[in-house]
Simulated assay, not measured.
Amino acid sequence: MNMVENNNPMPWQLKKFTELTTLELYYIYKLRSDIFVVEQDCVYPDLDGLDILPETYHLFATSNQLVMAYLRLLAVDTSYPNMSALGRVVIHPDFRGQQLGHQLLSRATQFLDEKWPEHICHISAQSHLAKFYQQHGYSIVTDEYLEDGIPHIGMERPAKNNKAELT
């Protein structure tokens, strides 16, 4: 599904794994590897089997085939009981500071509200990004913990149909 808007010609895409082209998949994995493994100096199993699940969605924006912003949306009960989840949220270094992260999260939120409106969304967020996610309705729900050697916190956004679910 192409998510291009009239006032923003950036080509946002929302696709399942089987809909991704070989080049899209290559540039998604390259970006994730460049940032999560190389830039953050973190060796971890990025290919965890969740990308290929039938109800996993990949949301991304491209420029000349280069993936500028990306995240994956995991269906309810995939990673957390009775919750959907966001993961692998990443902005290409050449495109940081251009509000792409906010656009990415806004689009993800819209999708979550349409696809799984009855369910909370969980994210394991890098601790230094807490305020960013709070701007998009996420609240801190865990103490800080280390994930792959990087400080993280659990954050959740209430279901669209029950905004009072989180305190």
Rank of each mutant, 00 (worst) to 15 (best):
G97Q: 05
H58S: 01
L59K: 04
L100K: 02
I91K: 03
S84V: 05
G87W: 08
A75Q: 07
R72M: 07
D77M: 02
D94H: 14
A69I: 13
G97A: 06
R96C: 07
Q65Y: 13
S84Q: 07
A85N: 04
N64H: 10
R96Y: 08
L66E: 15
Q65F: 12
H58Y: 12
P54Y: 04
Y57Q: 11
Y70Q: 04
T56M: 00
A61H: 11
P81L: 00
P54E: 12
Q65E: 15
R88D: 08
F95M: 09
S63V: 12
R96F: 08
V76I: 06
Y57W: 12
M68I: 05
P93G: 06
S84G: 15
V67N: 01
S84L: 03
L86W: 14
E55H: 06
L71W: 07
R88T: 01
Y70G: 07
L73M: 15
P54A: 09
L86C: 10
I52P: 12
T62D: 05
L100H: 02
Y70R: 00
Q98A: 02
Y57H: 12
F60M: 07
R96G: 12
S63H: 13
P54C: 09
Q99F: 06
D77Y: 09
S63A: 15
E55I: 02
N64Y: 09
Q98H: 10
L59C: 12
P54T: 03
M83H: 04
A75G: 14
R96S: 14
T56F: 04
Q98M: 13
R72Y: 09
S79A: 15
H92K: 01
I91L: 08
L100R: 06
T78F: 08
Q65D: 15
E55D: 14
L71P: 02
M68Y: 10
I52T: 13
P93F: 00
A61M: 00
H58R: 01
M83S: 11
N82G: 08
P54I: 00
L59Q: 05
S63C: 14
L86I: 06
T78I: 06
R96N: 11
T62W: 05
L66T: 15
S63I: 10
L100T: 06
Q65K: 11
Y80M: 06
M68S: 12
E55A: 07
D77Q: 09
M68T: 07
P54V: 02
L66W: 11
A61T: 13
I52H: 08
E55G: 05
F95S: 10
N82K: 03
N82I: 04
L74M: 11
V67I: 13
E55Q: 09
V76E: 03
L74E: 12
D94K: 04
L73Q: 05
L71D: 09
A75M: 07
V67A: 06
A69R: 10
F60E: 13
L71V: 03
T78A: 15
N64C: 07
A69E: 13
S63W: 12
A61E: 10
T78H: 10
L66D: 14
D94N: 09
H92R: 00
D77W: 05
Q98P: 11
E55P: 03
V76T: 11
P81Y: 04
Q98S: 05
I91N: 08
F60L: 09
L74T: 04
V89D: 08
Q98V: 03
T78E: 14
M83G: 08
R72D: 12
M68Q: 12
L71F: 07
G97L: 11
L66F: 14
L66N: 13
H92I: 01
Q99H: 14
